[in-house]
Nucleic acid binder design. Sequence first.
DNA 1: CAGTGGTCTAGACCACGAA
DNA 2: TCGTGGTCTAGACCACTGG
Lengths: 237, 237
Amino acid sequence: MKSSLHRTIRTDIERNIHCGDWPPGYRIPPEYELQTQYDCSRATVNKALSYLAAAGLVERRKKAGTFVAAPRAHSAVLTIPDIAEVIRAQGKTYRFQTLSRDTRPLDMTNVDEQELAVACTVMALTGLHLRGGQPFALEERVVNLDLVPDAKDADFTAKGPGAWLLRHIPWTKGKHTISAMACDDHQAELLKLTPGDACLQLSRWTWREGKGVTFVRQIFPADYLELTAEFTPNRFG
Amino acid sequence: MKSSLHRTIRTDIERNIHCGDWPPGYRIPPEYELQTQYDCSRATVNKALSYLAAAGLVERRKKAGTFVAAPRAHSAVLTIPDIAEVIRAQGKTYRFQTLSRDTRPLDMTNVDEQELAVACTVMALTGLHLRGGQPFALEERVVNLDLVPDAKDADFTAKGPGAWLLRHIPWTKGKHTISAMACDDHQAELLKLTPGDACLQLSRWTWREGKGVTFVRQIFPADYLELTAEFTPNRFG
DNA sequence: CAGTGGTCTAGACCACGAA
DNA sequence: TCGTGGTCTAGACCACTGG
């Protein structure tokens, strides 16, 4: 194994933790001790330990020392698919059909829109993502026109509003919620379902520098979409 | 803002990227230049840039320099809740009720179990997570007894099998899938629903050193659980 | 070839916080 | 108080790879 020294130290410690020799709460030797053990400078040891702390595998406390962290709550990297890509990967054609589109002030009485946390003019949009001409997902969205004025006259037909926004404005923070729901009469009609049918509901808020950019709710018939998330204990390769 | 120097450098660069002054592909000044600009040692500059590279915000290539990375695909950190904790947070009592439990070889004809990728003896378990005595979620699980022999006789009543396993065996890799589904007659009866009602289905596979540890499928009535995922461009605080 | 990042050293001072 | 980690310095050598 060709590797740098700080990486060797890191993986040695990881191995001790993963094999159970160093259980949660175990006190890892302090830097000056590892420095002697590996015959290197303190900076090199520090780099290894800082990495492990950033990855959440250990916890460092001044004066007290470095300790093996308790097993973390399950968390994983969730990939939010681009709908157009998903559909094209299935060999079908994609199109976004706008159902309604108008400009109005942000509705602060709506709890979902509230979270955007800024008074602004928004474009409210509803539309359908079509797979081979058939409804694939229903989308309801508001876009902050103060931050993205170009959105007002943009054409979303080919890529959908999500991909258009991603290319036109960078975001610094985002939140998603995922839930199951039974569709109502209106949604059922648009998606060609029966009222009460199970759907996956994906909501997303995005902010840029603390200002809300967009809120979107997407509704997929249950069979159409499955989200996947991967867990890896080490965030970096 | 009281802060360390490497953090100042880092946030300065982040701001340049987020505000659009430094678009994707932009070449960031090399270390020796920033070293002069901030009047500090190269190690300090390097620490800031290494962090940004680890976070995926920039890409570093020897000889060529450091470049602003292209915007990443939507991905977010998904938190998979511990069911017992969710329920206790609601002020209700939690209990796990085992419905069936037996030992058998891994069923390689079952596509879900296939993914564990090892022939082994498993414990197959079905049970209910109870909130205040009422069904909250249905769980079907297989556990690799070759890796976790203690699971055979463990008592899951207080914490549920998931939390028990988390404490008894570390895992190195995991995969989740999330989907909506309509419950069938059997599930409806156990969860006290009407057949066809919308449910959220969460499946999880975990491995340890390439060997499958457990597969679990959990089914929640639509209203009972909402998953949240947060996106932050900086993986560390 | 030479610019650039990757790594490492042998010190140093300071702030925090457990004992 | 004083052990510990957090941060920083002013160098150094090397590996990689683009021009």
